[in-house]
Nucleic acid binder design. Structure first.
Lengths: 225, 225
DNA sequence: CCTCTACTATCAGTATCTTCATATTCCTAA
DNA sequence: TTAGGAATATGAAGATACTGATAGTAGAGG
């Protein structure tokens, strides 16, 4: 779950980052309008926390730009004052929720979870190439045919498909699938073994995408050459 | 019921540990400031017995750190001298009770029981995701709908929800739910069977959190991907 | 005391996961 | 271009976890 925090107050941004990281979200930061635009163009996020007042522009402008460009990211507007205007404007522009400063971290977490859940609920299935995943039933279809996957295999494939085409670091994948209890031993045998199984099943079922290794970083799901 | 004893006097710590263990509490020990910080960061306790004088720092500092970080553990301050200063400082920092050395074990037990009772009484309901538990009526709601749970199922779910997101070792869960019944046979079939039932009921009721297995350790309650 | 019922424990069979040893691939420096 | 080391891949084996069926147990009610 990847989240972009657009907030110029560094201290607050750091606190939020810490809290969200602890909850196992993947967090990135932007500190101004321009930085946010760059980040959004380059990566894909599940949720964007957007401060209204930025040093070089308004978060609301960024929001309307975002929505105009057809991006599907969920957005939670954060405003310094409990301004009805900001709230109304934000929600009209397509924001998913609104939060007034100061707020409790617990409240923030709850909003994010709610937004993300709503968003996922809307999506019946994920796909990449001829692979289709239904998160609700934990089922996988490749080329129209049902493929049985173990728990870990499913988690891994789900992660890849939901980030199809993006570079995925080993550490991040491990964290997402196994959780934060993995120690810092640089031994990823457990990951290799599972990735191998996923690849085998994908190949057997005739998938038209593959998990490519990126030496020194991790993996990437790409169409077969 | 898990208790952390922070006490550098090994002999005293051992006596307390014995007494509390006999009373069926789960007891862990830390012998200095640093060790306590580590323990507290890693695990969650229902009650912490905190000596003021530690070889590498003051228990009062540890207390304020604890409270500042929003931890919910109950704390009973233990001081070598019957110092009014320590008592006042401790209680002001948010300690739940104060006990001067030397003390009777009976007294210690009474204080712990009182603190724990107060603590449980204060919380009307626990929740994680769309699961809500009322400890007073032993009732469980998932997504707003009442779900019937047997005693063991309830105990397990309660334990998970009260420690949502934390890694829960099989041994600890077993100890918490079954008490002294578990022998040292490394057979956890009885636990698996119950966890299976809880999972089934959670899935049937449409919970948005799940009990994930952590190979070689135990479980973890996490939001569904 | 008996019966019924819901709960709990146990067992055996199966699936899954990690680990280890070993192989292969990839990158870099010379 | 090639040697050598690092990173990744593989197969097999043992450990761990899950499942469904079955049997035992306690409690309620007659």
């Amino acid at each position: 779950m990847k989240i972009l925090i657009v907030e110029d107050n560094r201290e607050l941004a750091e606190i939020m980052t810490l809290a969200l990281t602890k909850e196992r979200f993947i967090v990135e930061n932007a500190y101004d309008y321009l930085g946010a635009v760059r980040k959004i163009a380059e990566y894909e996020y599940d949720c964007i926390l957007l401060d209204v007042m930025l040093p070089d522009g308004s978060g609301l402008d960024l929001l309307s730009e975002l929505k105009a460009s057809g991006k599907s990211e969920s957005v939670i507007i954060i405003s310094a004052r409990d301004s009805i205007d900001d709230k109304v404007a934000g929600l009209e522009l397509g924001a998913d929720d609104y939060l007034a400063k100061p707020f409790h971290l617990v409240e923030l977490l709850a909003r994010i979870r709610s937004v993300v859940r709503r968003r996922q609920g809307g999506v019946l299935e994920l796909s990449a190439g001829n692979i289709t995943i239904r998160p609700d039933s934990h089922s996988v279809k490749i080329g129209g045919k049902q493929v049985e996957m173990s728990r870990k295999e499913y988690d891994i494939l789900h992660y890849f498909v939901s980030r199809s085409g993006h570079l995925i670091k080993k550490e991040v994948l491990a964290e997402a699938v196994w959780g934060d209890h993995i120690d810092q031993s640089d031994d990823f045998d457990f990951l290799y073994a599972q990735v191998k199984n996923v690849r085998r099943k994908m190949a057997e079922a005739g998938a038209d995408v593959e998990i490519k290794a990126v030496y020194g970083f991790g993996y990437k799901l790409t169409p077969i050459a």
